[in-house]
Amino acid sequence: MLKIKVTDVKQFMYCQRIIYFTYCMPLSVKKTYKMDYGKDKHERVEELEKRRTLQRYGLEEGEKRCGIDLYSARLALRGKMDLLVVKEDEYIPIELKYSTRKPRLNHKYQLAAYGLLIEDQYQTSIRKGLIHLIPNKETFEVEMTSNLRKKVKEIINKIRELIELELMPEATQERGKCRGCEYRNFCGDV
């Protein structure tokens, strides 16, 4: 079974064509300024995170683990979790975002996909995850419901189907997303 990445879940929800161009028509694209800037900020935050307390996430205690590689053979899914907090037998995934906008659905599904990986890898059950907005220092809790888990599994299957059929999906309805997209020049209809 084709292994996909957790970030593919986020990208699929953002624009399905990103998955098409990544897997069906691998292109050499230049990273955008926004991508480079976000990566640099993300790396800096990971560095600083090692000495920060958990209070910024509304947590009292726990062991912080940064940059955890996760894999599930059952889901054929892999990813690198920004931050995982472990306290006793509770695992709390934390996704760090360099954004001032409240988390969108694609971010919640990405977090839930990490939750599924953690459940498989550590043989546990995740009750919640957190999305932390770095600039605003805001943290949002996402409950890991059965419906959320089900939806993420459906998205994983849709990603595989898209790749298998190799049919270019319709363009996103939110054309504002296209302005800074590294694949914009390849779409032809946006």
Rank of each mutant, 00 (worst) to 15 (best):
F12Q: 04
F12W: 08
F12R: 03
Y14W: 09
C15T: 03
Q16M: 07
I19C: 00
I19Y: 00
Y20V: 00
F21W: 06
Y23N: 03
Y23A: 03
Y23C: 00
Y23K: 04
C24G: 01
C24S: 05
P26R: 11
L27A: 09
L27P: 02
S28Q: 12
S28Y: 10
V29M: 03
V29C: 06
K31H: 14
K31A: 13
T32H: 02
Y33I: 11
Y33F: 12
M35D: 10
Y37Q: 11
Y37T: 06
Y37I: 08
G38W: 01
G38K: 10
G38C: 09
K39R: 13
K41C: 11
K41L: 12
H42F: 06
H42C: 13
E43P: 08
V45K: 15
V45S: 14
E46G: 09
E46C: 13
E46Y: 14
E46F: 15
K50L: 12
K50R: 15
K50C: 13
R52W: 15
Q55P: 06
Q55W: 15
Q55V: 12
Y57T: 08
L59W: 10
E60D: 14
E61M: 14
G62Q: 10
K64P: 09
K64E: 10
R65W: 06
R65F: 09
C66N: 15
C66T: 15
G67I: 02
G67V: 08
L70A: 05
L70K: 05
A73Q: 13
A73V: 11
R74H: 14
A76Q: 15
K80R: 15
M81L: 15
M81T: 06
D82K: 02
L83Q: 04
L84A: 04
L84C: 02
L84H: 01
L84I: 02
L84Q: 01
V85T: 04
V86D: 01
V86A: 05
K87H: 13
K87G: 01
E88M: 12
E90N: 06
Y91T: 04
P93M: 05
P93F: 03
P93E: 01
I94Y: 00
E95G: 07
L96K: 11
L96R: 12
Y98L: 02
S99M: 06
T100Q: 10
T100V: 12
R101V: 03
R101T: 14
K102T: 12
P103L: 04
R104D: 00
L105V: 01
L105K: 13
Q110R: 07
Y114F: 08
G115Q: 05
E119N: 03
D120R: 07
D120Y: 05
D120P: 00
Q121K: 05
Y122K: 05
Y122Q: 04
T124F: 03
T124A: 09
I126M: 02
I126T: 00
G129H: 02
L130H: 05
L130F: 09
L133Y: 09
I134T: 07
P135N: 07
E138Q: 08
T139P: 07
T139S: 13
F140A: 02
M144I: 09
L148N: 04
R149L: 13
K150N: 13
K150G: 08
V152K: 07
K153Q: 10
K153M: 10
